[in-house]
Design a protein around this nucleic acid. Structure first.
Length: 265
DNA sequence: AAAAGAGCCAACCGCCAGAAG
DNA sequence: CCTTCTGGCGGTTGGCTCTTT
């Protein structure tokens, strides 16, 4: 019986992607679009499984990705959505433009979980952790630290973190100052109030974003109706880092350097 | 300065649902 | 209707980086 594996693993490369492989993948997708992942590696000249290509593109190379840590409001939104949806990372990710399920999942497991536990909130149920003091039991250390009986609404224990998680499970999404969009934002729409006056967008970006040179960042910021193809001026010479793209206002051109790093030429 | 430990994250794996034949 | 294939998802892990001793 057994299904055929998604790809013939013999002779395929695994592990971290090289800049060269990234270029090939980017080049192929930019010129041909996302077609059948199974056949993509062959067509693109990659010794990778199609699944691996897809993952690399979605989680790392896609031009509309934000990079860097989740902002406070994003984190709050993740917690709130997790309370509603559980571990449906892709659903949660669909509410955070430019973020991937993998990224959110990682952030949850490495940061948020700990924060919640520290605050006495069970990261699974989003309810206050109630420590039953049974003498024979051997509760985990972190739970011992949990607030013993009071609901986590005091926020006093939050002396290290920059925001108080106590109230998070009760936040109404509409109150969160983050753009919430449907999953398929490719054709997203006019409903986004954020689009604001595009004239100042790039300036704003430069002021407060550490990855301002990152075109991906610019793209995700300008999420309304942009098409990646519209940005491209030249993808002929990818091997020498000469994918050139312009921002939608035509004000800047960017030069590809490595996987998701673009600079002003 | 070096070693050990902890933390983080990119990538892999297996499973599932839906589409196609 | 059944089988096969593909894309997508969530859980897990290996290894790199950072921090502490």
């Amino acid at each position: 019986m057994g299904r055929q594996p998604c790809c013939d693993k013999v002779g395929l490369k695994r592990g971290p992607w090289t800049a060269e492989e990234d270029k090939k993948l980017i080049n192929f997708i930019l010129t041909n679009g996302q077609c059948c992942w199974r056949s993509l590696p062959k067509l693109a000249g990659l010794l990778r499984c199609g699944k691996s290509c897809r993952l690399r593109w979605i989680n790392y190379l896609r031009p509309d990705l934000k990079r860097g840590l989740l902002s406070e409001s994003e984190e709050k939104l993740v917690i709130d959505l997790h309370a509603q949806l559980g571990n449906r990372w892709s659903k949660i990710a669909s509410q955070l433009p430019g973020r991937t399920d993998n990224e959110i999942k990682n952030h949850w497991n490495t940061h948020i979980k700990k924060k919640l536990k520290k605050m006495g909130i069970d990261p699974v149920t989003h309810q206050p952790i109630i420590t039953t003091t049974t003498p024979s039991s051997d509760p985990p250390k972190e739970q011992e630290q949990a607030l013993p009986s009071s609901p986590p609404t005091t926020g006093k224990e939050d002396n290290e973190e920059s925001f108080c998680i106590d109230e998070v499970p009760f936040i109404d999404p509409s109150e969160i100052p983050v753009q919430v969009q449907p999953a398929c934002s490719s054709s997203a729409s006019s409903s986004s109030p954020s689009s604001s006056s595009s004239g100042s967008i790039l300036q704003d970006l430069r002021l407060d974003w550490p990855v301002t040179e990152n075109l991906a960042g610019v793209m995700s910021f300008l999420e309304d109706d942009f098409k990646w193809e519209d940005f491209l001026i030249n993808v002929d010479d990818i091997d020498s880092n000469l994918i050139v793209a312009a921002d939608p206002l035509g004000q800047e051109a960017y030069q590809y350097h490595d996987w998701a790093h673009w600079t002003l030429p």
